[in-house]
Measured scan of single mutants.
Amino acid sequence: IINNLKLIREKKKISQSELAALLEVSRQTINGIEKNKYNPSLQLALKIAYYLNTPLEDIFQW
Rank of each mutant, 00 (worst) to 15 (best):
K37I: 13
N31D: 15
I30V: 11
G32R: 14
V25H: 02
Y51G: 04
T29E: 11
A20R: 02
L46K: 11
K47H: 05
A49S: 11
L44Q: 06
K11T: 11
L44P: 01
G32I: 11
Q28D: 15
L7I: 15
E57M: 09
E10Q: 07
Y50V: 07
K11C: 09
Q61N: 12
L44F: 08
A20Q: 03
K13A: 10
L7K: 14
L22H: 14
I59W: 02
A45T: 04
S17A: 14
I59D: 01
K12R: 10
N4A: 05
N31S: 13
G32E: 15
N36D: 09
N39H: 15
N39E: 14
I1H: 12
K47F: 04
I59Y: 02
I48L: 08
V25L: 06
R27S: 11
K12V: 09
A49P: 01
K37S: 11
I2D: 08
D58K: 09
F60L: 03
A20D: 02
S15L: 06
G32D: 15
V25K: 02
N31P: 01
P40H: 04
R27W: 15
L46C: 14
A20I: 03
W62G: 11
L7E: 15
I48R: 00
L44T: 05
K37L: 15
A21P: 01
A49V: 04
I8D: 00
I33N: 00
T54Y: 06
E34L: 04
F60D: 01
I33A: 02
L56Y: 07
K47A: 11
S26G: 08
L56D: 00
A21M: 14
I59F: 03
S26W: 04
Y38C: 12
I33F: 05
T54F: 05
Q28V: 12
K37W: 15
F60G: 00
L42Q: 06
L44M: 08
I14R: 04
D58W: 08
D58N: 09
L56F: 10
K12Y: 04
G32T: 09
Y50F: 14
I2P: 09
Y38P: 03
N39Y: 15
A45P: 00
V25F: 03
L7T: 14
L19K: 01
S26V: 03
T54G: 01
V25E: 05
L22S: 09
E18F: 07
I1Y: 14
E57S: 12
I2N: 12
K6S: 08
L22C: 11
Q43T: 12
L52R: 00
S41I: 05
I1G: 09
I8A: 07
F60V: 00
A49N: 01
S15A: 08
Q28L: 11
I8Q: 05
K47S: 06
K6T: 08
N3E: 02
L42Y: 14
K13Y: 09
L23Q: 01
T54M: 08
Y50M: 12
K47P: 01
I33P: 01
L19W: 03
A21N: 12
V25Q: 03
I30H: 00
N36Y: 09
P55V: 05
S26H: 08
D58Q: 11
N36V: 04
K12H: 08
I8R: 03
A49E: 03
L44Y: 02
Q16E: 06
P40Y: 04
L42R: 08
